[in-house]
Computed example of a mutant assay.
Amino acid sequence: MTPAPLPGYHYDHPDLPASPVTADDFDGLAAATLFSDADVTALKLAGEVLADQTERILDVWYGFVGSHPHLLAYFSTPEGAPVSEYLAAVRLRFGQWIADTCTRPYDARWLAQQEEIALRHTSAKKNATDGARSVPHVPLRYLIAFVYPITATVRPFLAAKGHAEAEVEAMHQAWFKAVTLQVALWSRPYAGAAW
Rank of each mutant, 00 (worst) to 15 (best):
M1S: 09
P3Q: 08
P7D: 12
G8D: 13
G8Q: 07
H10T: 14
H10P: 07
H10K: 14
Y11R: 13
D12Y: 11
H13P: 04
H13L: 05
P14K: 11
A18T: 14
S19Q: 06
P20T: 08
P20F: 05
V21E: 12
A23L: 13
D24I: 10
F26L: 14
D27P: 03
G28E: 14
L29N: 11
A31M: 06
S36H: 07
S36A: 10
A42C: 10
K44E: 06
G47W: 01
E48L: 14
T54A: 03
E55H: 13
I57H: 03
Y62S: 06
F64H: 11
F64D: 01
V65M: 05
V65P: 01
G66N: 15
H68I: 15
H70R: 13
A73K: 07
A73P: 07
F75G: 00
S76E: 01
T77Q: 14
T77M: 06
P78C: 06
G80Y: 09
A81W: 07
A81E: 08
A81K: 15
P82V: 11
P82N: 11
Y86C: 05
A88S: 14
A89Q: 12
F94A: 12
G95P: 01
W97N: 15
W97F: 14
T103W: 04
P105C: 01
A108N: 02
Q113R: 11
E115I: 00
E115Q: 06
A118F: 10
A118S: 15
L119M: 08
S123V: 10
K126H: 04
N127T: 15
N127C: 14
L140H: 04
R141G: 07
Y142M: 07
Y142K: 08
Y142V: 11
A145R: 08
F146C: 05
V147K: 03
P149D: 07
I150C: 09
T151K: 10
T151M: 00
A152E: 13
V154F: 02
V154M: 10
P156A: 11
P156S: 10
F157E: 00
F157A: 03
A159D: 10
A164V: 08
A164H: 10
E167D: 15
A170N: 02
H172Y: 13
H172W: 15
Q173W: 01
A174L: 03
W175L: 10
F176W: 09
T180N: 04
V183G: 04
V183S: 03
A184D: 07
L185R: 08
L185F: 03
W186V: 00
R188E: 10
P189K: 03
Y190A: 04
Y190E: 04
A191L: 15
A191Y: 05
A194R: 09
W195F: 13
W195I: 02
